[in-house]
Simulated scan of single mutants.
Amino acid sequence: MRSARSVPLLATLLLLGLVLTPATARSAPAAPTPVAANGQLKVCGTKLCNQQGKTIQLRGMSTHGLQWYSQCVTNGSLNALATDWKADVLRASMYIQEDGYETDPRRFTDLVHSAIERATARGMYVIVDWHMLDPGDPHHNLARAKTFFSEITQRHRDKNNLLYEIANEPSGVSWSRIKSYAEQLIPVIRAKDPDTPILVGTRAWSSLGVSEGADESEVVGNPVNAANIMYTFHFYAYSHRDEYLRTLARAADRIPVFVTEFGTQNYAGEGANDFAMSQRYLDLLAAKKISWVNWNFSDDHRSGAVFKQGTCAGNGPWTGTSSLKPAGVWIRDRVSTPDDF
């Protein structure tokens, strides 16, 4: 005979699928989550590899700035991202300026902690995005970055599903200046977390220098003095045309690259969608096994936000396509394409 206390416990276990009923016993086993399938990631040569050393390509979404759109990062929205969209990775985007981290370090660090825990619970990888944007010199925020990443690595160093993006979009500074920043911050991270891949922003808003008249050769010829790192590339398909695409193609054969942000619109994440150019980029990324993250998982009024305005305030619906803008419908289809793990 069950005790009175055992009944709600049994109901809870049934809800979570932790007790086999005749129906669940006959059902096919659930597919492993991205993290369960791949474990601790590492950089091998010019590629991102799983714990078995197999080259993989992660696909997922970036939040908008957590200071503005944390209401879009909920249990419901992340359930949909993990199970309906079948995303591999969430990028937690924490602006430093623009009413972000510098205004309340405790609050914004806790928002990142929360995003990490929620994504981890759903078996996704998490990019911790130190979203420096303006000013464009990452040294402006070096002391803050050391404080922030010291706490993040202390708390989460035993997890196997993180990546650290240490400078979102440097601009107006030389590659040597960005490299100097990375070589001062990386040892702080490595002191507590020796294994997590680190993503280094590149010159000219992470365009490998193209938006300021350079190209990938400055990084290829003068790489950051650190192991287990990748370099970031960002593109917005309506604005960033063939020169950017060719640069990315060349760079990916020489250095490890991760596309941590892209959109199907112009460089401001707004205006018309150019799905044809976007698909050219995604075809290249698939061919070269370059991981990517789309901007952005919010209901901002711009066309680059995947949800229609009011979706987050109304708490969904998160699944399906009824709440999605055209860019959201397009990118959901490409995030959820069956993986090759």
Rank of each mutant, 00 (worst) to 15 (best):
L162C: 10
L162F: 11
L66N: 06
D274M: 00
L13F: 12
W175Q: 06
S62C: 11
N79C: 05
L81P: 02
N266K: 05
F235Y: 10
R203Q: 13
Q51W: 10
H139K: 07
V329G: 02
W205M: 07
V259T: 08
W130D: 04
I189H: 07
W205R: 02
G271L: 01
L163F: 13
D299V: 05
P187E: 05
A305L: 05
L20S: 14
D84M: 05
I178P: 03
I166Y: 04
K42S: 15
L163P: 05
V293M: 07
E102P: 00
P338M: 00
G39D: 08
R144G: 08
A36T: 11
A4K: 15
R246H: 14
N266Q: 08
M61P: 00
A87W: 01
L324N: 02
L18P: 01
L41E: 10
Y181E: 00
V220D: 11
H140S: 10
S62H: 04
T264P: 02
A30R: 13
L13G: 06
A11F: 10
D195A: 14
E243I: 13
M1L: 12
A121E: 14
G209I: 00
V188M: 01
V7D: 11
Q97S: 14
D99I: 04
G209K: 03
K179V: 06
P197V: 11
S180D: 13
K54C: 09
E117D: 15
A286I: 00
H139I: 00
L14S: 12
P317E: 05
V293E: 00
Q184R: 13
K54H: 13
A251H: 03
A237V: 08
A115W: 00
G314I: 03
L48D: 01
N168R: 02
T264H: 08
A182D: 04
D137S: 09
H156Q: 12
L15I: 13
M1C: 12
D193H: 10
F148I: 05
A191N: 12
W330E: 04
K288S: 04
R334N: 09
F297K: 01
D242E: 15
P138R: 07
Q71L: 12
E183T: 09
L199V: 14
T319P: 05
R91Y: 03
T202G: 06
S322M: 06
P29H: 10
I116R: 01
Q52T: 14
T109G: 11
H234S: 01
W330G: 09
E243N: 13
L90R: 09
L208H: 04
Q40P: 08
Q51R: 15
A119Y: 01
P8E: 05
G221V: 11
A251S: 04
W292P: 00
M1G: 14
Y231V: 07
A237K: 04
I186V: 11
A268C: 04
R26Y: 09
T21S: 12
V329N: 02
T12Y: 15
A36F: 10
A252M: 09
Q97N: 15
W175T: 02
D300P: 02
I56E: 08
W318D: 01
L48T: 06
E102K: 14
N273T: 08
W292D: 03
W85K: 10
I56L: 09
T103R: 12
D137W: 00
T321Q: 10
